[in-house]
């Protein structure tokens, strides 16, 4: 039964293949070398078998006849040449032996275009049929050979049986690899060391030097905060969003600006030259309110020469005024 099925399929295949050739590639088979074409056919056959099988499984309800009929009907509509060919195929589905005869008839009957492909088909069937037989035989032979090899007992060795001939060579190579790895590792370590150069992990405890640095930094922060406090306590209670207060602040900043102009520029001293706290430092130097200053009305050369340098005295007055206004808040 299986054989019959196979043959039938092959018949179907033949028909299908022919159909394809007719439609698309009329000249292609001629150009193609026979072995290649043959191979292609073989592959096609396998695939088609598979597809067929799947299709059968898919619609298992339908009987085979139905399927065959459907297929047969397709070429009749599309193909004029194979009209009689289909008739001849009907018996071939039942009997495998008539296949060859049919082929021969086909060979004679079809036109030149078809002849070549027909030839291929014939060859194909001829090769495959004994090929399967050979394959089954080959499987047995292979099985025997494989079993032979597997059953062979070999000496237990680290290097294994296959490399036994080159045992010494392999040992040398392994040793060499080992040495190479060692040198590589060393180089890597060296590189790592170079990459880590200068990288130190700090100690868990507080080193005196670090303590000193922290104290220096703290001093700087304290100085800044005090300066900020001094500057901002003056304008405390004034809300910049309120226009009146904003005006007041503006006035003060203006006054402060003029006072800055009047003063000599600040020169950085040795420790903690902090530019940011500059203004605060200047304010540190003398009390804001003029009468509280040590040298008020005493050493000021400006007062002595009040009639000589009118410009400067004006600016001084502005400065005084600013300091007065700021001291009011305090």
């Amino acid at each position: 039964m299986a054989e019959v099925m196979q043959l039938r399929e092959s018949g179907g295949l033949l028909r299908k293949r022919k159909l394809g050739k007719k439609q698309g590639h009329k000249k292609k088979p001629k150009l193609m070398p026979p072995p290649h074409g043959q191979k292609k056919v073989k592959v096609d056959k396998k695939m088609k078998k598979l597809f067929r099988k799947r299709a059968r499984e898919y619609n298992s309800d339908d009987d085979d006849e139905d399927e065959e009929e459907n297929e047969a009907s397709v070429p009749t509509t599309t193909n004029k040449h194979n009209g009689d060919e289909i008739d001849s195929e009907e018996p071939s589905e039942d009997e495998g032996k008539t296949e060859g005869g049919r082929k021969g008839w086909n060979k004679n009957a079809t036109d030149e275009d078809n002849e070549f492909s027909e030839d291929e088909g014939g060859e194909d069937d001829g090769v495959v049929q004994p090929g399967i037989m050979k394959f089954t035989e080959g499987v047995r032979a292979f099985k025997m050979a494989f079993r032979n090899i597997i059953n062979k007992s070999v000496s237990e060795d680290l290097l294994g049986p296959i490399l036994s001939g080159h045992k010494k060579l392999i040992a040398d190579k392994l040793a060499e690899e080992e040495a190479e790895r060692e040198t590589k590792g060393e180089a890597k370590k060296e590189k790592q060391k170079l990459a880590e150069k200068g990288h130190v992990t700090p100690a868990n405890y507080l080193v005196p030097h670090e303590k000193f640095l922290i104290s220096v930094a703290t001093k700087g922060v304290v100085k800044l905060f005090n300066a900020v406090n001094k500057a901002q306590s003056a304008q405390k209670g004034l809300d910049p969003s309120r226009t009146k207060d904003a005006k007041e602040i503006k006035k003060r900043t203006k006054a402060a600006f003029f006072s800055e102009l009047g003063k000599p520029s600040f020169t950085a001293t040795g420790t903690s030259a902090k530019a940011n706290a500059r203004t605060g430092k200047v304010e540190d130097e003398q009390p804001a309110w003029a009468p509280l200053q040590d040298n008020y009305m005493l050493t000021s050369a400006k007062l002595k020469n009040w009639d000589k340098m009118p410009d400067k005295s004006v600016s001084d007055e502005v400065e005084r005024a600013s300091e007065d206004s700021s001291s009011d808040e305090d």
């Binding site: 220096v216 930094a217 700087g220 950085a268 001293t269 040795g270 903690s272 030259a273 902090k274 940011n276």
Partner: peptide, 22 residues
């Protein structure tokens, strides 16, 4: 914030350093 400490003014490279970091 930045705090610079121990930079004695006068030396050109140090002055530049303080300026730069400020």
């Amino acid at each position: 914030l930045i705090v610079l400490s121990g930079f004695v003014s006068g030396d050109l490279p140090l002055k530049l350093t303080t300026n730069m970091f400020q």
